[in-house]
Write a protein that binds this DNA or RNA. Structure first.
Lengths: 137, 137
DNA sequence: GTCTTTTATTAGACCAATTCTAAATCTTTG
DNA sequence: CAAAGATTTAGAATTGGTCTAATAAAAGAC
């Protein structure tokens, strides 16, 4: 289920602004910045303000319907795939971002001796390398 | 070898300011923000300016003597352990950050079918959970 | 040593991303 | 419809970080 469907299922109040933002973020593999969300939302609703975009993004994050991704470039990105656990693979050449769905549970892969008594909940992995296109040049 | 020793070994020009910053960052497991580096540096050299701190941090990063860590909280952190590859384990309760040195090479652990033709160079892993202290409360 | 050149430091202006504020506008409910 | 509540808004404010242009310090040449 894609973001906008999940929001409808939850019966979240969908104003025109929220709907447009949710539609922009409805897709299987998106990693947009707030700026990019604003631009795309404005294509459908030119009057929408950045404050609304930030308000909405933060609400969705709080609801668990959007995941904040830091550490890819310097801008925060928003990932609407909160359904399937996954990591990210970034090309150092062109900054393309792909989702990866590893078999292995990396959180569990941390040896007990390295856990320092923590109860380890999750592991977020950022893979980086060169994509096929950037390997040639 | 700790940061300041490596800089001496490289014969990097050590002004009073650079020395103080390098000393602040000399330790086995540090993950300071620019702000924290400035505060600690000012304990030894109160006149030091934030511009110098940022200049120096960026130079050290460029030299490969300091690693930028994004994605832990919202502030960039600087990690002087560029010698041993490692990942980070963060407590969601108290934000404590620990280094972990896993046996496994996570970059290699990404299945070929999930590589999308990339040449995968590295994997940065951020483990999160609750530390022994925060598990009780 | 002094002159010259290079390098480092600085205050403060600047910038970009994000949050805050307080007013205005919708929605819902009685 | 009126009142209460939620949402949106422009623009101000804040924050983390960079840039600029001037000053200071160090290194090299003689």
């Amino acid at each position: 289920m894609v973001l906008i469907e999940r929001l409808r299922a939850r019966q979240w109040r969908l104003s025109a602004q929220r709907r447009v933002i949710a539609e922009v973020l409805s897709g299987p593999s998106l990693h947009l910045t707030a700026e990019e969300v604003t631009q795309r939302a404005r294509a459908a609703l030119p009057e929408i303000s950045v404050a609304t975009v930030y308000n909405t993004l933060n609400e969705l994050v709080g609801m668990g319907e959007l995941r904040e991704i830091d550490g890819i470039g310097r801008l925060r990105r928003y990932d609407p795939n909160t359904v399937q656990p996954h990591h990210h693979l970034v090309c150092v050449g062109c900054d393309r971002i792909l989702d990866v769905f590893p078999e292995e549970d990396f959180a569990g892969a941390l040896e007990p001796s390295e856990r320092h008594g923590f109860e380890v909940h999750r592991a977020d992995v950022l893979f980086s390398g060169r994509c096929p296109g950037c390997r040639e040049g």
